[in-house]
Design a protein around this nucleic acid. Structure first.
Lengths: 109, 109
DNA sequence: GCGGAGTACTCCGCTTTGTGTAGTAGCGTG
DNA sequence: CACGCTACTACACAAAGCGGAGTACTCCGC
C-alpha cells in the first residue's frame, strides 16, 4: 500500500501540530515532520500545505533573511489556526477510533 | 474539515475489514461501513473501491439473483486480499500511532 | 574561482481516489 | 401507475500529495 494516500487530509493536521510548538519555515517543518515519523513526506507537499493553510487564514507569515542560505518564510498559528487544529484533532481522533474498532478481529471478541 | 479526504487510502482497508467477516455485495458493504461509523461514505466510492480491489486481484466475485430486487454482485476475500488486509492494517496502525504521538500536547509532557 | 552539496522555495503537470449526478432496472406498496 | 427501496454502472469533477525542473544563496574543497 502506498502510504502517500494516507496523508490526504491529514498533512494539514500534522503541519498545524508541528507549528503549535513554535513558528517554522517550510524546510524546517519538513524536517520536523520527518523527525516525528512521517519519513515519506515530500517537500512540495509541505510547501503546498503551508500555502493553502495561509490562504485559508490559519497562519501568519513573515520573511526573515538567513545568514546561512536563502531567506526563510516563517509561518505561525493564529487564532483561526489553533481552532482549526483543535477541531481537526478531534475529527482525526474520532475517525481513527472508528477505524481501529473496525479493524479489531471480530473472531477474538 | 471535510472528513472525506481522510478516507483516501483508508477506504480500501475499511472495505477489506468488512469483507473479512463475510462475503458481501456493494450495497451491503455500504450499509456495514455506515453502521460501523463511517456515516459519510458515498455509494459510488464503495462500488469503485470494490471494482478496484477486484481488478487488483484481492477479491473474488460472483453474481447472485435476489428475491427482493435486482441481482447482487458478491465479493469475498481471497488469499491476496487477506494478505493485503494484514499489511494495510499494519501500515495504518503505524501511521495512526505516529499521528497520535504528534498530536500529544508537548506542553503537558 | 568553479563545481558541488546543503539550504530554501516556486511552479507545473500528473495521478490517485472519493464524490455527485444521472441513468438503468427489478420489486413491492398505496 | 407513481413512488420508494434495492442494486449497480458510468462519467465528469475536484482535492491533494508527488515528482521534477528551475532559481538562488552560502560554504567548502580542489
Amino acid at each position: 500500500m502506498d502510504s502517500s494516500q494516507l496523508l490526504k487530509g491529514v498533512l494539514d493536521l500534522a503541519v498545524l501540530a508541528v507549528l503549535r510548538e513554535a513558528d517554522g519555515y517550510g524546510y524546517d517543518v519538513l524536517r520536523r515532520l520527518r523527525a516525528a515519523g512521517l519519513e515519506d513526506v515530500a517537500d512540495a507537499s509541505v510547501y503546498g500545505t503551508l500555502r493553502r493553510l495561509f490562504q485559508a487564514g490559519a497562519l501568519t507569515s513573515y520573511v526573515q533573511p538567513s545568514e546561512e542560505g536563502p531567506h526563510r518564510k516563517y509561518y505561525g498559528l493564529n487564532k483561526t489556526g489553533r481552532e482549526l487544529l483543535a477541531r481537526s484533532t478531534e475529527t482525526w481522533n474520532h475517525f481513527a477510533g472508528t477505524m481501529s474498532l473496525l479493524l479489531v478481529d471480530k473472531e477474538a471478541a
